[in-house]
Nucleic acid binder design. Structure first.
Lengths: 207, 207
DNA sequence: AGAAAATGGGAGCTATCGCTCACATTTTAC
DNA sequence: GTAAAATGTGAGCGATAGCTCCCATTTTCT
């Protein structure tokens, strides 16, 4: 029996070397995505940007898509942290206040790294290894559904799955489109107006 | 002074030949996008599929992106026809009925050619010639804003631009996500439930 | 009919892409 | 100290992409 030839990302090791290499690769990938777009993000270009040889790149990532997927994962983790924090706050608040808090968090999330978010949303084809990296939303549905369960008394009797779908999809679309299309310099007044409108929309729907 | 070398899509000519060639190219592009995805849609592949030489392809389209843009334009025209028809109907109906009509039309639009729609939405990078092919939505905003103007008496006093943004973005996101993610075989019962929920959402918001 | 314009054809150029492999260097284990 | 394992290097291979150019065929015009 032959040995396994060479599998995916090697685990830990002399931490300082290989971990730094991996970090440099992910960071370089994100930088190129933001500055030059998805098309320019070839493996050779990424390796050069990271100051790492192309051979080393392939030690840790089997393809360009794996690299981009790693960037997406990291970005999603950051977004989810914001969402989770807002949900924790909202649990202790009345429905309308909580909704406002969640919507503000959605905007905050979209403003975390809007340029990266835009590239990932507009230029990154959901293909190959990237097909299922929409896991972000499905997790959000679940969390929000849990929130609604704790609020049963305040919402009309509805299919909670359906309601979660409607609310999450709506909030995501409104904040996403506003932040990306209304310019990243969306003024504070604009943000407030958007939060108010979105709050009215979902609260009116849930009650 | 030299002559202009050779510009973009030639206009009319011996209609039967060149017009057929152009049609074959667009049709072939759409077919490949649907069947094999954006990545496989190389100019050579498209020309082969269309039964046209690569030289002829470049007589009419300067790049692969121009071809895809043509497919998008055609698709958007089809979608807009559905939207316009629904809006015309809605003008003569009370707010809630009209909203229901518009939402049903949005679903209908997404079901026109869901596979193509999905490829364009998920795999087609908005880059180069494709950056501004989001013209579809901006036109819809305008049309819907016009609809709201005629309904001033029935909606609370609001910024109509903002309201149009909220409604169009919301309806688009809900129908898009539902059709694409809840499987293309979204049962009739599911469609009805979705229309009801979305109608409640936007009507509650507008009143 | 004959010339010119329009259209179609496709071999093949250049560039770049993803990726491998043979080897060098560094770290770890004993 | 020394052998083995881990990590890093980069020239370069094969494939394919977009696209040009030159020539053949068809249509139009007079």
């Amino acid at each position: 029996m032959a040995r396994k030839p060479l599998t995916r990302p090697r685990k830990t090791a002399s931490q300082d070397r290989s971990r730094a290499t991996v970090d440099a690769l992910i960071e370089a990938t994100a930088r190129i995505l933001v500055r030059e777009g998805f098309d320019q993000a070839s493996t050779n270009r990424i390796a050069r940007e990271a100051g790492v040889s192309i051979g080393s790149l392939y030690q840790y990532y089997p393809s360009k898509e794996a690299l981009v997927a790693a960037v997406i994962d990291r970005h999603n983790r950051d977004l989810m942290a914001i969402v989770r924090r807002a949900l924790a706050d909202a649990e202790a608040q009345p429905l309308e206040t909580g909704a406002r808090r969640l919507i503000a968090a959605a905007i905050e999330a979209h403003r975390l790294d809007p340029k990266l978010h835009r590239v990932l949303a507009e230029q990154t084809p959901r293909t190959g290894a990237l097909v299922n990296v929409e896991a972000f939303n499905s997790e959000t549905y679940g969390l929000f559904r849990g929130y609604l369960e704790g609020r049963r008394a305040e919402v009309r009797a509805v299919d909670l799955d359906l309601a979660a779908f409607v609310c999450v999809t709506t909030i995501e679309a409104l904040t996403h489109t506003a932040v990306l299309h209304r310019g990243e310099g969306l003024a504070e007044a604009g943000v407030e107006a958007l939060v108010e409108e979105a709050t009215r929309l979902v609260v009116g729907y849930l009650r």
